[in-house]
Write a protein that binds this DNA or RNA. Structure first.
Length: 201
DNA sequence: GTACTGATACTCT
DNA sequence: GAGTATCAGTACT
């Protein structure tokens, strides 16, 4: 496994400023990096979900702008982090043009960088359990509400998504219903690599 | 292997 | 006050 951060190409705003499902699909295989003073942490994105606006009852933007959801109406390529079930922070990337709500939930990673630190934070030695779920990956990477609103398109920031300069081994993209929602289950907006042990389900 | 449950605190009504 | 884009643990089969 490669372990250098050389020649990563950071995704720019125009990548995110498109249809949310398309962005969700294309984020698979990209690399999410969290920069810390100690070490860089991160891995391949292997599972995502798309959330729209007023057509999508599962979306936080379904009922329009609220203090929490207004960020989904803003600029693309911004991190939307929110707190769920009293315990977990979930990481999204804002999509669509300004004024149009949308976001992609990052649900799972294949760990690549900073694995030892992630093991400590997750209190487990099992590689598969480090980032195979949206709540787990934010614990491993140390993402919390303080990261809400950060710009993912700046390679100089401490949170960004980049294109890898090497080939990822997964070939086939599967899609399914989204996980954990009450409404909007009929939409197949979850995307993941098939036969990948690091997806959440 | 699957099924159910409790923990927990923030957001919006 | 109700609902929640989750997870780990326990109890089953």
């Amino acid at each position: 496994m490669h372990t250098t951060l050389d020649n990563l190409q950071v995704l720019n705003e125009s990548f995110y400023e498109r249809d949310t499902s398309l962005v969700a699909k294309e984020l698979l295989g990209k690399i999410l990096i969290r920069r810390t003073e100690e070490q860089d942490l991160g891995g391949f994105i292997v599972e995502t979900e798309a959330y729209y606006g007023d057509t999508d009852p599962a979306s936080h933007a379904f009922r329009g702008k609220t203090p929490r959801s207004k960020i989904m109406f803003g600029r693309a390529g911004i991190a939307y982090v929110y707190f769920c079930y009293g315990m977990y922070n979930l990481l999204n990337a804002v999509t669509e043009k300004q004024g149009m709500p949308g976001a992609v939930l990052i649900r799972a990673l294949e760990p690549v960088y900073g694995i030892e630190i992630m093991k400590k934070r997750r209190k487990t030695e099992a590689l598969r359990k480090l980032t195979n779920g949206p709540g787990k990956l934010t614990i491993s990477l140390g993402i919390d509400l303080g990261d809400n609103g950060k710009n993912l398109t700046s390679g100089t920031g401490d949170l960004y998504i980049a294109k890898a300069n090497f080939q990822i081994k997964y070939k086939k993209i599967g899609h399914s219903q989204r996980v954990g929602i009450r409404n909007g289950k009929e939409k197949f907006l979850r995307y993941f690599f098939e036969k990948c042990e690091f997806v959440s389900l």
